[in-house]
Amino acid sequence: MSRGLGFNGLHPAVAMLYFLVLLVSCMMFTDPVMSGLTLLALVALHLSLDGGRTMRRGLKLYAVLALFIFITNPLFSSRGATILFYFRDRPVTQESVVYGALFALSLVNVLLAFAAYSLVITSDKFLLLAAPIAPQTAFAITVTLRFIPLLTRRLKQIMTVQRAFGYIYPGMRKKLLMREGMETMHTLVAWSLEESMQSAASMRSRGYGSGKRSSAVRYRMEARDWACLWLIVLLGSQIVIGRLYGVHDYEVFPRLQPLDVSLSAWVHLGCYAVFLAIPPVMNGKERLHWRIIRSRM
């Protein structure tokens, strides 16, 4: 399988590790500087991956969830010393408002990171990674993925027949629609299970179950994969260990803390920034590469 030059073309295991560290960081950091930096980097990553299309599609959901947390957290937590106002006799504190905002930001980060992960680690790559660890599970999921579009198409065919009979029509009552929907399912289930026995014959006749399966695709670790891997391991352990030792341990309560400006905090921040810059830089480099080639032609 051919691999691109950018972050997408990285060995999937390396990319997976990157996202693992990224996700843990998104969840770990409550420091406003770190979270803000993460957000910026994630936006850049999304823009470099698909021009931000996926991000825009999810925007509404992210906003609603973040708003919900931002609003509800201060209402239920009265920790903190600086009281802003009272809501139904409960004090609403500045600290818990800030806390809500920080956690809303961290939620958005987590969701954006997952969305980017889905873009890079496609189902193919995911299953390739899973295959050596859990071959049978990965195989079952692959087959499931093959059936989903097939069954969706069949459902539509069945519903066409139901519409032609006048069993489904616009504006029908909810209960009737639920009944008809189940009729659709009955046809689908009986038909598809019956047919999957034919699929079994086709699998067996091509040697399924005759021994240990091999894998046609083998991703080789190339030089850039090793380089990235080292970078991720180095920076990742720095980030996680630093965090566990209390660097950038931003405490909101009882009173907002000033930002951490110690030397170790700056080093920590620097490492994190380099880590975050890996994918956008790789993708940017690729784009630049093509632009140069085109300009030379």
Binding site: R146, Q198, R206, R213
Partner: peptide, 23 residues
Amino acid sequence: SQIVMNTVWQELVFAMENLGYPS
């Protein structure tokens, strides 16, 4: 009913993988 894998590529190599051919 006779195709069980998700992509053309996977289906094409399905039989060979079953028999454990090297990559």
